[in-house]
Amino acid sequence: MKFTMRKALGVAAAVTALTVALPSPAMASDSYHVMNTGDAFGGGIFDYSGEAYFTEHGDIVKICDTDADGYAVKMWVNLDEPHGPNLYTFTRGGEGNCATHRASDGGAYNLPENKYIGFLFCRYKDGHESECAGYRFYNDH
Rank of each mutant, 00 (worst) to 15 (best):
A21D: 11
L22W: 05
L22R: 03
L22I: 12
P23C: 06
P23F: 14
P23R: 15
S24D: 06
P25A: 14
A26S: 15
A26K: 12
A26R: 12
M27G: 15
A28R: 10
S29A: 15
D30K: 14
D30F: 09
S31T: 07
S31Y: 14
S31F: 15
S31L: 08
Y32D: 13
Y32W: 13
V34N: 02
M35V: 12
N36P: 02
N36R: 13
T37C: 05
T37P: 05
G38I: 14
G38F: 07
G38M: 11
D39I: 08
D39V: 15
G42L: 11
G42A: 09
G44D: 01
I45K: 09
I45F: 14
D47I: 00
D47L: 13
D47S: 04
Y48E: 01
G50L: 02
G50S: 10
G50W: 01
A52W: 00
A52C: 06
Y53A: 06
T55G: 04
T55M: 14
E56Y: 08
H57N: 14
G58I: 11
G58K: 00
G58V: 09
D59F: 11
I60H: 01
K62W: 00
C64I: 08
C64W: 06
C64P: 07
D65R: 02
T66K: 11
D67S: 08
A68M: 06
G70Q: 08
G70F: 02
Y71N: 13
V73P: 09
V73A: 07
V73Q: 03
K74C: 04
K74R: 03
M75Q: 02
W76R: 03
W76E: 13
V77C: 08
V77W: 00
L79C: 03
L79S: 06
D80M: 11
D80E: 12
E81S: 05
P82L: 08
H83Q: 10
G84V: 13
P85Y: 13
P85M: 04
Y88D: 09
F90K: 07
T91G: 04
G94T: 07
E95L: 04
E95A: 12
N97L: 14
N97F: 15
C98W: 05
C98Y: 06
C98H: 02
A103T: 03
S104F: 10
D105V: 03
D105K: 00
G106K: 05
G106P: 01
